[in-house]
Design a protein around this nucleic acid. Structure first.
Lengths: 123, 123
DNA sequence: TCAATATGTGACTAAAAGGTCACCTATGAG
DNA sequence: CTCATAGGTGACCTTTTAGTCACATATTGA
């Protein structure tokens, strides 16, 4: 696909995908409290070890994990940088521009009518 | 599943899922500049009208869209509130606690060794 | 050495998601 | 009314993703 209007597919796509799953968000929440071994993390979920490991791999590929090997153990460390990146480049802009938009929305919700924008070519 | 450790499945799950797709993020980016009709939005992508409409529906179900009907047109308005909610309840905490964690990570990356945490039961 | 522990890989199944198509409804202009 | 236009729905196909299982490797302690 992606002929005339290719989908960007930036490097942060993997981060968004990683954050989309509740299990992975829970993993990040746990790692926010400190580093954990893979085995520790497996004990937190109702799925098998392999399922958790698959999630960990996706987090790692998204750059959200730094991994430290100690003998036969693997300590997983959270890397918050990609999340900050997403915030700076995507979420914060929504915070900034929201003020007057919210007023418009209030009108839409209350009266079913907003400011009337001029129409473009509809194709 | 979800036997011993049920996955939360909060109301914001739909928002995360909605944000996971690059096409939907692009739609939100466009709507951030102002309200658009469904037809307008369809012209921005290389997919058919139906594909775009499916994405719009998912955005709506996640609460990210407010819809205003004007005759036979539908004006889609961005509702930034759910994104702010996600920021406040999930992303901002990562910003706050990150400082010392980042120091630890530097050690991990540079020397391959971090502070040695005490081990728990591995199961 | 030997066995228990901790982790890793590849193939496989089932469900969900992205996308298209055929078809339908409603509105506005003449 | 009539017809072109904007929007909407459901079935359908294809790809991706979540999760499991069988099997394999590496490390530690006795």
């Amino acid at each position: 696909m992606s002929a005339a209007h290719p989908v960007p597919s930036t490097a942060s796509d993997a981060v968004w995908k990683a954050l989309a799953d509740p299990t992975r968000r829970q993993l990040l929440d746990e790692l926010r409290r400190g580093p954990r071994t893979t085995g520790d993390l497996c004990g937190l979920f109702a799925m098998t070890r392999f399922g958790v490991m698959k999630h960990l791999r996706q987090l790692e590929e998204a750059g959200l994990l730094l991994i430290e090997r100690r003998g036969r153990e693997r300590w997983n460390h959270l890397n918050p940088t990609p999340i900050r990146e997403i915030y700076r480049r995507w979420i914060r802009p929504f915070e900034e521009e929201g003020a007057d938009q919210l007023l418009q929305l209030k009108r839409v919700a209350e009266r079913g009518v907003a400011a009337k924008p001029t129409r473009k070519k509809t194709r």
